[in-house]
Amino acid sequence: MENETINDSMEGLLADYDVKRIKQGDILKGKVIDVNDKEVSVNINYAFDGLITKEELTYDDTNPLDVVKKDDELDVYVISPNDGEGYVLLSRVRALEVTEKENIKSAFENEEIISVKVKEVVKGGVVAYYGGIRVFIPGSQISRERVELETVVGKVLEVKIIELDFRNRKVVASRRVIEEKEYEKNKKEAWAKVKSGEKRSGVVTRIAKFGAFVDIGGIEGLIHLNDLSWERVHKAEDVVNVGDKVEVFVGEVDRDRERLALVLKDVEKEPWKVHGDSIKDGEIFDGTVTRLASFGAFVEVLPGVEGLVHISEITDENITKPADVLKTGQKVKVKVLNVDRENKKLSLSIKDADEKSKEYLQYNDQEEGISLGELFKDFKFE
């Protein structure tokens, strides 16, 4: 009887207020008027204030004082228009479920970015939450780079929804699609700015048989083996390793095919620039055979400077190919026949250098047995 009296008085109060009736399931705008550690009182512009219990405030057991404060505005879900004690029973979490679903649906349809918090690693990826909505991020969609899944647990990630099926509770997101778009944008800008001849800082990303790839800030270029050093390089690992920070010069730029040639060797230390003026016709060098061809042998006489010994200049003997008497890596004496500084070419002779050596030895043989005292016996020192 007492409850009936209360209900009757409420009905009368509502009639006096001339307000639109509310019903279970409605989502209203509310303003916090009081908070304690058990519940939150909310003004919903209705005849009665609303009440949100601790359990209906958040998805976890958080103290209401840590969630909201007086005058905060929030969406609320009507659980019951009358709790029997003069309050409208409300839920924040149920309102969030509705609005969060609407937000995710809108983000999916409009390809918008949302933020989710990663909770745990599961088979095939990680589970994150957008409020109270479970979101699965496959391992392949965490990043465009290789990432250990454990390192993202507890982090807030910006993602895009790539699959959505609320009926089957399937919400799939990707961080990678965002990174790919940003990468392509940065790459396009980088290709527009890069210029041949400029010096850039970069990081070695890959090693190949023919050279090393370097990222110079959004785009990747190749340093061919020949451009790693002025000296002969047999494998890139002899000069650089993945992760090395390097200073490179930009060579040929092919924007249409997105190909970039880079040079690691310092142009100021180009061997011909360093040694070219010191090489004279007729000079004898101790050299090393670097390559053999059908027409002759290439011999390095100074670091990075090599010349050609034509097959006719190897020996006076009749040979069909340089490999008959020479091998790569062999040490030989050579004589400079001609210096072409403009085209950076040397003509060398092994047989002429050998003849000069024989003349020197012959002279020593003739003087064999003569002491220094005998040679200078008629010389008077003053």
Score class of each variant (00 low, 15 high):
Arg291Ala: 14
Ile314Phe: 00
Val93Asp: 06
Thr58Lys: 04
Val171Met: 05
Glu258Gln: 10
Glu100Phe: 07
Phe48Met: 12
Gly296Arg: 00
Val35Glu: 00
Lys117Cys: 06
Ala261Glu: 08
Phe210Cys: 12
Asp18Trp: 11
Lys117Phe: 09
Ala323Asn: 09
Glu73Lys: 12
Phe298Gln: 11
Ala192Met: 04
Asn7Phe: 15
Leu90Phe: 12
Pro64His: 09
Asn103Trp: 13
Thr99Leu: 11
Ile22Cys: 08
Lys333His: 14
Glu247Leu: 09
Arg134Gln: 11
Ser196Gln: 07
Ile104Met: 07
Tyr87Asn: 15
Lys119Ser: 12
Gly50Phe: 09
Lys193Thr: 01
Lys358Ala: 02
Leu90Thr: 05
Lys195Thr: 03
Val325Ser: 15
Tyr183Gly: 03
Ala236Arg: 05
Asp256Ser: 02
Glu56Ala: 12
Arg169Gly: 08
Lys29Trp: 15
Asp8Asn: 15
Asp340Gly: 04
Glu231Ser: 13
Val19Ala: 06
Lys265Phe: 03
Ser357Ile: 14
Val35Ala: 03
Val159Tyr: 03
Gly369Asp: 14
Ser294Arg: 12
Ile161Arg: 00
Arg92Ala: 12
Lys235Gln: 10
Arg206Gly: 02
Pro271Tyr: 01
Leu96Met: 12
Glu220Pro: 02
Glu163Asp: 13
Pro138Ala: 12
Val325Lys: 13
Arg259Gly: 12
Lys377Cys: 10
Glu73Leu: 13
Lys344Cys: 07
Gly282Arg: 06
Asp324Trp: 13
Val301Asp: 05
Tyr17Phe: 14
Val19Pro: 07
Gly25Ile: 07
Gly221Cys: 01
Lys70Ala: 01
Asp8Cys: 11
Val152Gln: 02
Asp60Tyr: 13
Val147Ala: 09
Glu163Val: 15
Val118Thr: 04
Ser174Phe: 11
